[in-house]
Structures are given as structure tokens and as C-alpha cells.
């Protein structure tokens, strides 16, 4: 459900929008905590003069028309901060709601792998450089159909040392394919019915082969995160840089 409210008046106004669905509102959340202003029946927003605000929610129910109703509108004291949103109903100022606010507003907690898990180095580039991501013999089976391609890619990467650029990207592709296979498998197992689950387990060669899959995928997620940050910053730098060929030619 997507909505937009606009305030045409020249003062800040507080608006209460309630869902007309015959189901509880599933508000936008951060770290599992509803955004400020939301409760089980709707949202209370404070809109500045001439401002428009979009918001949305989900409801486990069939559509109704109109989906929402504005139940109250009131002008807000102008000395209040325009971004101050009234606390939601469970936000009663106790330590519990303060903790929920901290969870909602602060960056998500990500445990530093190097500190707690003295295993792999988190800065290690996620290409199959040393262990080809196949250090675990079970993984050969886990990385379904594409597993051969992926390890092939790694072997090529080792052979073609005179073509480091291409080999490196092959290795990255191979690794990504292996990750994709693992994620596919986990997705098929997530909320799967008995039949699907049985097929997946049989494909993998038993429950034991799947035992480490969850952990493995969590590790993949972390590596992918690091990779995406690095890739984004590199792309930014690459786009921003510019070789002044003409100027160099003149100088030469």
C-alpha cells in the first residue's frame, strides 16, 4: 500500500492516517523496529507547510477501497521542530522504547568477524584465489549444476597468469556462480514444503551435506557486502578519473 499526503496550509500539521484493511498494519521497519509514528492501526505524521510526504505499509488482507482514511488533522505548534514526529503508542519513554529507538535509528550491528572469529581475514578479496571456494569437498556437491564451471574458472585463473585481468574476472564470475547456486538452494529450502525440501536434500546427497550451508551462505553474504562496497567505491573512482591524453601528447 503506497500513500502520499500533502499539506497545502502554511502551518505544520499533524495528520493521523489509519488503515481500513481488516488486518493489522505491517509498518516499515528498521532492525525489526517500526519506524517512528507507526502503530498497529496506522501512522501519525507531521508535515511541514507545503510539504508532501510519501509512505507505505503492508497488510495481510485483500484490497479495500479506499485503503486508508484520514482520521484527524491538527495544526502543530510552530516552535516544535518540523521533523519531530510524535512517539508511537508503545513509545512510552521507558528504557525499552529507548532501546527500540536506538535500534531503529542507529546503524545495524555487524559483529567484526576478525575479532570474534579468528578464522579468515575479512579483507581477503572474495575471488577463488587459494582455495577455489571448494576447500570443502561437500561444497562440490552443494554448488549444484554450475559447480564444475565455477571450479573450472578457478583453474583457468591459475593457468592464465599472462592474462591476469581476464582470468581475474573469470574467477570472480566463477565465485559468484557458486554463491548463486548456494543462495538458490537456501531459497528453495526457505519455507519449503516437504516435497521440495526432500528433493533438495536428495540432490545435495543428504542432510549432512546441508549442515554447513546456512553458515556458508551467511559468510557469502558478508563477503558480498564487502565486495559491493569495494566495487562501488572503485566504480566511483573510475568514473571520476580522467586521463588527459591530449595534454600529455602536447607535453610529449
Amino acid at each position: 500500500m503506497r500513500c502520499r499526503v500533502s499539506n497545502d496550509e502554511s502551518v505544520s500539521r499533524r495528520v493521523r492516517v489509519e488503515s481500513r484493511f481488516d488486518a493489522p498494519v505491517l509498518p516499515p521497519r528498521r532492525a525489526g523496529v517500526p519506524e517512528a509514528g507507526w502503530d498497529a492501526t496506522g501512522v501519525t505524521l507531521q508535515i511541514g507547510p507545503g510539504e508532501r510526504r510519501g509512505f507505505g505499509f503492508a497488510a495481510p488482507s485483500s484490497p479495500v477501497n479506499p485503503p486508508v482514511a484520514i482520521t484527524s488533522v491538527e495544526a502543530v505548534n510552530s516552535d516544535a521542530s518540523p521533523h519531530e514526529v510524535p512517539r508511537c503508542s508503545d513509545d512510552d519513554g521507558t528504557a525499552g522504547s529507548a532501546a527500540a529507538g536506538a535500534l531503529r535509528d542507529l546503524d545495524e550491528f555487524r559483529p567484526p568477524r576478525t575479532a570474534v572469529d579468528e578464522g579468515r581475514d575479512v579483507t581477503e578479496a572474495p575471488v577463488c584465489d587459494r582455495d577455489c571456494e571448494a576447500d570443502d569437498p561437500r561444497d562440490e556437491r552443494l554448488a549444484v549444476d554450475d559447480s564444475d564451471d565455477s571450479t573450472e574458472g578457478c583453474r583457468d585463473a591459475r593457468r592464465d597468469t599472462d592474462e591476469p585481468g581476464r582470468a581475474g574476472s573469470d574467477a570472480v564470475d566463477g565465485w559468484l556462480t557458486a554463491v548463486e547456486a548456494r543462495v538458490d538452494r537456501v531459497e528453495r529450502l526457505t519455507d519449503a514444503d516437504v516435497e521440495t525440501a526432500t528433493t533438495v536434500v536428495a540432490d545435495a546427497g543428504g542432510v549432512d551435506a546441508l549442515a554447513t550451508l546456512d553458515e556458508r551462505v551467511a559468510r557469502d553474504a558478508e563477503r558480498l557486502q564487502v565486495l559491493s562496497e569495494r566495487a562501488a567505491s572503485l566504480a566511483e573512482r573510475a568514473a571520476a578519473s580522467d586521463v588527459p591524453v591530449e595534454a600529455l601528447e602536447r607535453l610529449a
Binding site: A98, A99, G101, A102, L103, L106, D107, E108, F109
Partner: peptide, 12 residues
């Protein structure tokens, strides 16, 4: 730090 793991104990 300033992540949730540092903020929540302070909020508590």
C-alpha cells in the same frame, strides 16, 4: 562506535 550495539546499552 556508534552502531546499534553501542547505542542500545546506552539507551538501556
Amino acid at each position: 562506535g556508534r552502531r546499534a550495539d553501542a547505542g542500545v546499552p546506552l539507551a538501556v
